[in-house]
Design a protein around this nucleic acid. Structure first.
Lengths: 139, 139
DNA sequence: ATATTCCTTAGAGTTAACTCTAAGTCAAGA
DNA sequence: TCTTGACTTAGAGTTAACTCTAAGGAATAT
């Protein structure tokens, strides 16, 4: 017999609120089982499923995109090529989002260095000048 | 004489809308100059400044955080240590956000591989089993 | 001359993803 | 018995960061 979790225990396990779980269910992302009296219960399988949904979310997929994906999934194995293509697009977006963030971060690093310079009374000139010098060095 | 840009030209240059620029100004993030007739104009210096704001934003800083930072800046060089500390916190957050995203992406990669397996009729079992095997190999 | 672009204030609308309330019912635990 | 936690539907509230409209006026471009 597999462990069964009621909504609040499950919510705690996956790091979501019962509200959010019902909301996701309403949006057809999750379909928990029910006891005869109507109460939901979730299993370890559901933990893995929600975990996967959160990975998708963490890769920057919106609710609507995830819903599309889940809809395809519900149509069976014939949609695997489409689902794979979806995930490849998500992967590309996610990678470029990371690259973009790293670029922004690089500037932040420089700004921190520039502050260090200011604090040590090294005259770096304006931040723009400092960056310019870096560009030239970089080449 | 430095080039002066009116709001819509400037908006185009920095990739924001005039609405957004006025909004940012209202929030004290930007302070463009004015012609005698009251029209705003922006300079290359403003391009660099907005660029920097967008880097901060791109590192995950919220409007409110950026406003705090800009407020400190307006108080002069004595706030440099605080500003540096701010940016260091932002840097740490940003790095951990990237790490998190990379972790989510790793799962996505695996899922794509798993789909490939399915499409080639290699029997990987369920995705959970596939991941489990990876964990063990990884050790 | 006419259309476009600029200005103002003030406030309403938008989007995503929750988050919660109301109002009423049901069932299990101490 | 009393509290706690589950259920329902339907809809309202929240937050961030815009995004736009209205209404009225001034200047510029074709």
């Amino acid at each position: 017999m597999e462990k069964k979790y009621k909504i609040s225990e499950f919510a705690h396990l996956v790091g979501l609120s019962p509200y959010t779980l019902r909301y996701y269910e309403n949006e057809k992302l999750i379909t928990p089982h029910r006891y005869d009296n109507g109460q939901r219960y979730y299993t370890n399988h559901d933990i893995r499923w929600v975990g996967f949904l959160l990975h998708l979310k963490g890769c920057g997929m919106s609710m609507n995109e995830i819903k599309e994906y889940v809809k395809l999934r519900s149509q069976g194995d014939s949609t695997i090529p489409q689902r794979k293509a979806w995930l490849q697009k998500v992967k590309a977006n996610s990678l470029s989002k990371i690259k973009e963030m790293q670029f922004h971060l690089k500037i932040l690093f420089h700004k921190i260095d520039w502050y260090d310079g200011k604090l040590n009374n090294c005259d770096y000139g304006s931040f723009a000048e400092y960056l310019d010098r870096f560009e030239k060095k970089g080449k």
